[in-house]
């Protein structure tokens, strides 16, 4: 190596390596910096607004004052109901794809459908929600309609992450179970699911963060600009944090900056917190594998 290290050819190559490294590093920094800057800005401008009163009271005076409590409650309703719908369907769909389906045209079609479900624009999901749940099934604009729309939209997240978690369970475990006469379902229930539950939870948590942040799909299906009372059932309309941020930053005049920044900060904190939990769980699993 020593002989070549000083040749011009080698030096030039070394130079190109350094330049490439610098450029790639710069690109990555260009991605990372805005995120940090934006988060910093939100925290800096929004933090002063955060108070128990802001979190736990309703907006007043045409939403130019007061808090965001109804929006927080509404988001919880939407997330909870959509989770109750998409989690079981998504997990079972992943079980089907990973444990039952063979590589055939059926599997390919399902796979393609999942890719598309994830790729269809959120506003088209909204149109679907209006056409199907609000009008055709006559659920009206309600938490139910909005949650169904959100559930279908976020289904691919759960399917993909559950499938990954299931696939991480070694094939030899399944074979060992089949060899002693356990049926497919017994194998799944007693061995596969218990050993992938943490990964599945990660996916479900990610779904929560997706659903909490979405705006377009709930615009016309169940979220309302202002509802003077907290929702009592899935047939009510509700406010939502994301929708509220949209409304006060574009539709209402003279909302104090602290309120808009504060609302944005709460939404981001919620999403980041939820994501953080899922990241922690994931790294825990990696360390605590039983095999």
């Amino acid at each position: 190596m020593g002989v070549f290290a000083t040749s011009p050819e080698s030096r030039r190559r070394h130079r190109s390596q350094q330049v490439a490294f610098a450029v790639l590093l710069a690109m990555t920094v260009l991605l990372v910096l805005p995120v940090l800057a934006i988060l910093g800005m939100l925290v800096w401008r929004g933090a002063p607004a955060l108070s128990l009163e802001f979190l736990f009271t309703a907006p007043v005076r045409g939403m130019t004052a007061g808090g965001i409590w109804p929006a927080i409650v509404g988001t919880m309703w939407l997330v909870g109901v959509s989770l109750a719908i998409s989690a079981p369907i998504g997990v079972l769909a992943a079980v089907y794809l990973n444990e039952y389906a063979r590589d055939s045209w059926v599997t390919r079609v399902i796979h393609l459908a999942i890719v598309n479900l994830a790729g269809v624009p959120s506003i088209v999901h909204a149109l679907f929600g209006v056409g199907a749940f609000v009008l055709f099934f006559r659920f009206g604009t309600s938490i139910l309609s909005a949650s169904l729309t959100l559930a279908i939209m976020t289904l691919p997240v759960i399917i993909a992450s559950t499938k990954e978690a299931l696939a991480a369970v070694p094939m030899t475990f399944r074979e060992a179970c089949w060899n002693v006469g356990a049926s497919r379902w017994q194998t799944i229930w007693h061995v596969v699911l218990p050993n992938s539950i943490a990964g599945i939870l990660t996916g479900i948590i990610l779904q929560v963060s997706r659903a909490a942040g979405e705006t377009a799909p709930i615009l016309f299906t169940g979220a309302a600009v202002f509802v003077p009372f907290l929702p009592q059932s899935v047939n009510d309309q509700c406010m939502a944090l994301s929708m509220h941020l949209f409304t006060i930053s574009t539709q209402v005049q003279s909302v104090p900056q602290s309120i808009t920044y504060g609302t944005a900060l709460v939404l981001v904190l919620l999403v980041v917190l939820v994501n953080g939990v899922s990241i922690v769980i994931r790294s825990r699993i990696r360390r605590r594998r039983k095999w």
Partner: peptide, 16 residues
């Protein structure tokens, strides 16, 4: 549940 994704994609297309 396995084929639900297909149903939903068709549903989206149909209802829109």
């Amino acid at each position: 549940c396995g084929v639900s994704a297909v149903i939903f994609v068709f549903g989206i297309f149909y209802f829109v």
